[in-house]
């Protein structure tokens, strides 16, 4: 299913973040599209957490369509990671664009969050 996380339509498509989900084995793959910043970060977090069911043993954020993430966005990724750790669920992100990859690298977030090239690699890594 697809859902809009914020009502930022007046700013145009580039300023929104939308998510859609699919399941692969026990993993919930959340495709994330647009940008995550201070204006929509906590809505994004709520939308993601609302999608996670007790059956999901792993959660993967697919960032292929994510154009930008601000520090407020990184913070909610951290909150999601902490929440999943508490629920003993695995967590990874995948398919980062060059810019988003750079943001994760410079901030050092790639040292504490598993980053994979694509959803397939993330799913098989989390199944092991």
């Amino acid at each position: 299913m697809t859902r809009e996380c914020t009502d930022t339509r007046h700013l145009g498509k580039d300023w929104q973040v939308n998510i859609s989900t699919e399941r692969d084995g026990g993993a919930l793959v959340i495709k994330t599209e647009g940008r995550i910043d201070g204006s929509n970060a906590s809505n994004f977090q709520n939308s993601v957490e609302a999608e996670i069911t007790t059956e999901d043993s792993a959660v993967i954020l697919d960032f292929e369509q994510l154009n930008y993430i601000s520090s407020a966005g990184l913070r909610v990724i951290l909150l999601i990671a902490k929440d999943l750790q508490q629920k003993s669920k695995k967590f990874a992100i995948c398919s980062l664009s060059t810019l988003v990859r750079e943001i994760f690298m410079i901030s050092g977030f790639d040292q504490i969050i598993a980053v994979h090239d694509d959803p397939g690699a993330a799913v098989s890594a989390l199944q092991n």
Binding site: L74, L78, I106, S107, G108, F109, Q111, I112
Partner: peptide, 11 residues
């Protein structure tokens, strides 16, 4: 150059 190092307060 990038020398690594992570944001403070998260780990």
């Amino acid at each position: 150059p990038y020398i690594g190092g992570i944001a403070l307060g998260i780990a």
